[in-house]
Design a protein around this nucleic acid. Sequence first.
DNA 1: GTCTATATACCGATAGAC
DNA 2: GTCTATCGGTATATAGAC
Lengths: 192, 192
Amino acid sequence: MAQARGNTRQRIQDVALELFAEQGYEKTSLREIAERLDVTKAALYYHFKTKEDIIIGIFQDLARPIDELVAWAAEQPRTLETKKEILRRYHSALTDAAPLFRFMHENQATVRDLSIGLTFKERFVALNEFIQDPAAPIKDKVRAVSAIFALHAGTFFMQNIEGDPEEKQEAVLEVALDLIEQAEQAKQAKQA
Amino acid sequence: MAQARGNTRQRIQDVALELFAEQGYEKTSLREIAERLDVTKAALYYHFKTKEDIIIGIFQDLARPIDELVAWAAEQPRTLETKKEILRRYHSALTDAAPLFRFMHENQATVRDLSIGLTFKERFVALNEFIQDPAAPIKDKVRAVSAIFALHAGTFFMQNIEGDPEEKQEAVLEVALDLIEQAEQAKQAKQA
DNA sequence: GTCTATATACCGATAGAC
DNA sequence: GTCTATCGGTATATAGAC
């Protein structure tokens, strides 16, 4: 009774994500999760039907911000400012749920065929379409994709670079915004 | 005897990489690899001491170009042209061994603690250091990391964008080169 | 809601014949 | 160099008591 009553489900998800992120999904057994919580494997099965259900639950809770972003983006005019705002919001979502996205990033092979409606990658593709201009030259399309990828790079790989974390995050966002601006500049130059 | 004699080891590696890339390392069993080759599991153990040895063998064969690139880079002056050449060669290595790098990318959690001397990520970090200027402002450091990441984006995510594959690959490299040039421009402006 | 106990299945790995 | 047979271990998942 170290903890309160109705939160076992949540605690399972918390511990599971921690272990999944640390060791990978397959290498983490239910026994391990149960031990960390001081319960038995059987107890987990009261809260989740399968192991997959655990990760699906985590995913759905934390991926909601991305879905909201996709929904929001669908209603906006396709201006440069909209695209920049998409990148800002995506950057923010990535930062808020960093452990989850780190897990998704490092376990794509596992996550790929979970019984989830949309995968991480599909959401990525959806966002990508909003910031792409179908008529743009290939190089500008690459710039747009790279803008999103730069945000990922910032979230997952910037630990290898020294500097104040907040300052780094800001720089990452700036580079992404620069890229999308460059992608649009060529278009405007063409129209002029 | 559908195939020749001394190539069984190679055939195991080929099939294994194919399955590992498709389903992930953990979800691919030795039984599955053996079945695909029409041999038994025990036969695999004649050629490889463990399952891990199979992936390590694949990795070492195909990662050698990266190691050579790192070694080459260490001997070059740290000019802009060197950095651009590093990106060109890395892009080329990525393209040549795309299935392996795709596997590495999607199975980082698994690959992380294999008994390999250097991980994929460590090589990435090494290359990153060669194209970084320690004195540069954070934003330029981010640009440099993003240049490498753009190459990865190109190798793994560009399938979602229509266009001629070769043209796309060229555009990817151009964007990466642009990023490293931008990172250096600020520095030169500062010196002037 | 959590427990003990167990079913069932598959995995990686080895021994030893051919 | 490949086979048959099997060992030992662990995994997910379930049945049923409390």
